[in-house]
């Protein structure tokens, strides 16, 4: 497609993961169980890997941007108007906007109560409190939970595996 203009080391480092800022916040929090649970749900919406991939060194990240620039300019070098939009877009890419950020900006709470909105359409909490639990290690019904992170497990065997390999995985 385009000629290569990128850093040859990108391929290697893009596989490595850096702790994203919200993960760092979770780590600092005293309430690990809540934070770990939230981080876990967040992770289910990620496109790549479990923890949002953040390029580990800054040069590397810059090369990714250059890459995109080459790509974008090819597509849209036609008009001034697009150039300004492109400039805006590049700026925006430096601080990528998530849907949650856009949602926050939209300030839906200020809408009159009869207007349907994203927030009001959420189904809401389940009515019955009978929550079922499955072991995070083997998937069986789980009656115990880890005191540090709240992850469920069914037996000593699974607890040990959990402690050895994954406790607080979503936080650290």
């Amino acid at each position: 497609m385009d000629e290569d203009a990128s850093n040859p080391f990108r391929r290697m480092s893009s596989r490595t993961r850096k702790v994203a800022s919200k993960m760092a916040a979770a780590l600092a929090s005293s309430d690990n169980r809540t934070q770990a649970a939230l981080a876990r749900l967040e992770a289910l919406e990620n496109d790549n890997g479990v923890i949002e991939a953040v390029e580990i060194n800054d040069d590397d990240e810059a090369s990714l941007d250059d890459d995109d620039q080459v790509y974008m300019q090819k597509k849209q070098s036609k008009s001034m108007k697009r150039k300004t939009r492109q400039a805006k877009a590049l700026e925006a890419r430096k601080a990528p906007r998530t849907f949650i950020e856009l949602l926050h900006e939209a300030n839906l709470e200020s809408w009159p109560p009869h207007v349907p909105s994203y927030i009001r359409a959420a189904v809401g909490p389940p009515s019955s409190t009978s929550r079922r639990h499955f072991c995070a290690v083997c998937g069986s019904a789980a009656n115990y939970s880890c005191v540090r992170c709240g992850t469920r497990f069914c037996s000593c065997r699974c607890q040990n595996i959990h402690n050895d390999t994954r406790c607080l995985k979503f936080v650290a």
Binding site: P126, S127, R131
Partner: peptide, 26 residues
């Protein structure tokens, strides 16, 4: 094994995952 049905099960019981949302029937 059980992954095969525990995965779609989320839609019916999001609370299993710690999500505070009702499942599809509700």
């Amino acid at each position: 094994t059980n992954e095969r049905f525990l995965v779609p099960e989320m839609i019916f019981h999001p609370a299993d995952l710690g999500m505070n949302q009702a499942g599809l029937a509700e």
